[in-house]
């Protein structure tokens, strides 16, 4: 089993070669930038910039879309909420809904159809949205004699602000994905450790935290392997992982968690012995093998990021 922890995709691009510290800093600057931007146009410009970065990173656009899918609901909700309730600015369009017996009947038919289609794997949020949009469309048609007419007003600011928030989410998610897709988790951890180094003055245990993260990263594939083994072992003893009601699900999870905990504690014990036997103790002075060096492109990147931020502040105020 080859689990890719942290979704790193190995390509040979300039984004991959950048120093992880620079990438993290630039991401932070970009995030600040998106929160200082107040107009849709500027937000779209930033999106275009991120898009350009994605293209030059040689990573398929599909990966970024995939990372947006879990947020589809949040994005839709944000947008719809703004459109429905933000009533500022001029009205740019009005949706007239005709409530008649025929449309309501058709509506019921559509819902029944949707429920039937759900059985054939046509489900998920996307299909729900499509069905919902179709139902709205039904009501805009002038079928039968309406007994009630509802006017939905679309306000300019509602629409632009909805889009504005939507684009902001897309930028934040794809830029973060760009970081994790182009940087190995170990490098990311290494970069974070360096950036947090100043916090040591405040007695933040930076080295220990980074050691913990790196061990966690190192053991995720091992533990996932183990979950698989335990699942097979428990399945051979009659635990059915594929189906069941809530009560059975609890049994399944317990039958997985208990051995996982026992084994993990044993592992942790072994590992701490092995680490100590090799001279480690928390809080010790250690040298650093993986040195990070800024190169010309790194300086250029950070310079660009900073001038980007300055530009945003300048143009937006």
């Amino acid at each position: 089993m080859n689990v890719i922890v942290g979704r790193y995709i190995n390509r040979n691009s300039w984004v991959h070669r950048l120093d992880p510290r620079m990438k993290i800093l630039s991401l932070i600057i970009l995030m600040i930038g998106t929160f200082m931007t107040s107009t849709l146009i500027n937000m779209l410009w930033i999106l275009a910039g991120v898009f350009l970065l994605i293209l030059t990173s040689k990573i398929s656009l599909l990966n970024f879309i995939k990372s947006l899918v879990p947020l589809l609901f949040l994005m839709t909700f944000t947008f719809v909420f703004q459109v429905l309730f933000n009533k500022q600015g001029p009205i740019i369009s009005t949706l007239t809904l005709n409530l008649s017996f025929i449309t309501i009947l058709l509506n019921v038919v559509v819902i029944i159809g949707y429920q039937i289609l759900k059985r054939f794997r046509i489900r998920g949020f996307f299909w729900f949205l499509l069905t919902f949009a179709f139902i709205i469309y039904l009501y805009t048609l002038n079928l039968g004699t309406p007994f009630k007419i509802i006017n939905l007003n679309l306000y300019r600011d509602g629409l632009t602000f909805g889009l504005f928030l939507l684009v902001r989410i897309i930028i934040l998610v794809s830029a973060s994905s760009l970081l994790t897709l182009t940087t190995k988790p170990a490098d990311l951890n290494n970069g974070l450790e360096r950036l947090m180094k100043p916090l040591k003055v405040l007695k933040v245990p930076v080295d220990e935290m980074s050691m913990m993260i790196s061990i966690a990263l190192r053991f995720i594939p091992t533990l996932l392997d183990e979950v698989n083994k335990i699942m097979k072992a428990q399945a051979s003893r009659g635990v059915d992982f594929a189906s069941g009601n809530i009560k059975k699900k609890v049994v399944q999870i317990v039958s997985l968690l208990v051995p996982m905990f026992v084994i993990s504690f044993k592992r942790a014990d072994d590992l701490s012995n092995a680490m100590e036997a090799r001279g480690y103790f928390p809080g010790m002075e250690r040298s650093k093998f993986g040195i990070l060096k800024f190169r010309f492109s790194d300086y250029l990147t950070i310079l660009f990021s900073i001038s980007f931020l300055v530009g945003i502040v300048y143009f937006d105020l």
């Binding site: 170990a186 190192r218 001279g279 250690r286 040298s287």
Partner: peptide, 23 residues
Amino acid sequence: NQFVGSTVKDDLAFGLENLCLAH
């Protein structure tokens, strides 16, 4: 349970870093 680093190289480096050796 005694492989500390994320790669073979890093695992060796772990002990050597503990000895405070130079790069």
